[in-house]
Amino acid sequence: MIELQKATDHPLDENVVFHVHGVTKIYQMGEVQVRALRGIDLDLYKGEFTVLLGASGSGKSTLLNILGGLDSPTEGHVIYGDRDLTRASEKELTAYRRYHVGFVFQFYNLIPSLTALENIAVVTEIAQSPMQPEEALRMVDLGDRLHHFPAQLSGGEQQRVAIARAIAKNPDVLLCDEPTGALDSKTGIVVLQALQRVNQELGTTTAVITHNAGIAQMADRVIHLADGRISQVDVNETKLAPSQLSW
């Protein structure tokens, strides 16, 4: 099995899942250089529910993509556990995503030709120690819609299938990109409840990016991004339950 190289020069606190150090990302867009990230330093801790909050263009998606192994920084290091993502090959990054990361997308990205159950199986079949797909669906309260195709599910249901798919492999970290972005607030809250339950029951480190400040209050920590920099970090002394949120 392909694993990431050890980053021995960056010993980490065992509670730190991600250690982001001096990360800069510059995109060459034609003749224009876009500086999406300008020197990010950040640690994410085990079991923590973090919200990365920022407006469009603040760099939050770029940061999430780098954390998820979908993109690499122009400068700086991202240490995952004791391994350096920035030095990983394409194959190593694929293995990293396969065994360690769960993704939830804004537009669900379910496979239309597979049923809810099969959309989860497609991931558990290639994972190392997954849970049963049925069990994952029960965690998001969809135990009765196992054999429905995406076209037969509502948006909220599709997103809960996507969450089940992300957690079914028992990932070390769950990365969610605007998970409620395509949903109305009522449905969005159901989705957030599912995310919170996973975080609490499985202890999965969860990072949610959003531009919706209303969601921030359910997080352990809120990291504000603006213009490619971390502008502010808030720690919520008292977290709200998703049902108490409104936007």
């Binding site: 998820g68 979908l70 194959k91 694929t94 293995a95 990293y96 995503r97 396969r98 065994y99 990361v101 993704f103 997308f105 990205n109 496979i111 239309p112 497609v122 991931v123 290639i126 798919r165």
Partner: peptide, 16 residues
């Protein structure tokens, strides 16, 4: 394209 890219994000190899 979208479906296949999603699977790549989920950790599928290019060959898969």
């Amino acid at each position: 394209n979208r479906e296949l890219a999603s699977l790549r994000v989920l950790g599928f190899e290019r060959s898969e």
